[in-house]
Amino acid sequence: MKIVTLAAGLSLLCASAAQAADRTPEQVVKDHVASMKTANVDAVMADYAADTVVITPPGLVPSQVPATGPGVYSGIANARKVFVVLTGSGSIAGIRSMETTVEPLGGDVALLHWIQFRGTPQQVSGTDVFVVRRGKVAVQDIIVDAPAH
């Protein structure tokens, strides 16, 4: 009985891994946005590879060193720092207001065009570049548009 239970568990695990690997970059990015809006950091991180790299604009993460250049967060533990900030109380309203469009570029790349607080003085927009491999985010570059003057 234990062998049957173990085999069933391994079968489900393998099926889940295969499903994750079958997701297109567009699907991964859409799942990422949905998880971000729930402020569930564990769900967000489930879409990232162990060796992921997340690149942020200067100062996005308060503890960024150096604070003057882009932030580069290598590995899942470091990348998690970015999403703790983005889903935290100081940022979640913007995330939840975010309107998004995903643009698949072919292969393993998709763009996420986003805008927060549309039509208000707080409006901000940008484009994130995602590289997705085997159903997981390998690289994400968060690019914020320059404010309109």
Rank of each mutant, 00 (worst) to 15 (best):
V65Y: 07
P57E: 10
V41L: 05
L6S: 06
V29I: 13
A67W: 06
I55V: 15
I115R: 13
S97C: 06
R23K: 15
V54K: 01
E99A: 13
M36T: 09
L12S: 08
S35D: 13
S74V: 12
D31I: 09
A17T: 11
K2C: 06
D51M: 06
A7C: 11
S89N: 12
A148L: 14
P57S: 08
S97I: 05
D141H: 12
A93K: 08
L86N: 08
K81V: 07
S125M: 04
D22V: 01
M36G: 08
V144F: 09
D51F: 07
A17S: 13
R133C: 09
F117C: 02
V28S: 09
I55P: 05
I115F: 00
N40I: 00
R80I: 03
G71C: 06
A93C: 04
G135A: 07
G126N: 02
G106K: 00
P57F: 12
V65C: 02
P25S: 12
V33P: 04
A110D: 00
L105T: 03
M45D: 11
A138Q: 10
A46P: 06
H113P: 00
Q116N: 11
A8Y: 03
A110S: 07
A148P: 04
K30G: 12
I92T: 04
V54E: 02
F117K: 00
R23V: 08
V109Q: 05
K30H: 14
P70G: 10
R23L: 15
A146L: 15
A43F: 03
S16H: 10
V33W: 05
V84R: 02
A148K: 15
T87M: 03
T38E: 11
A50R: 10
H113I: 01
V139R: 12
H113R: 09
S16G: 12
V53W: 03
E103H: 14
R23N: 14
Q122A: 14
V109W: 02
P104E: 00
I3Y: 03
L60N: 04
R133Y: 02
F130K: 01
Q140D: 10
Q64K: 04
A146Q: 15
V29F: 07
V102G: 05
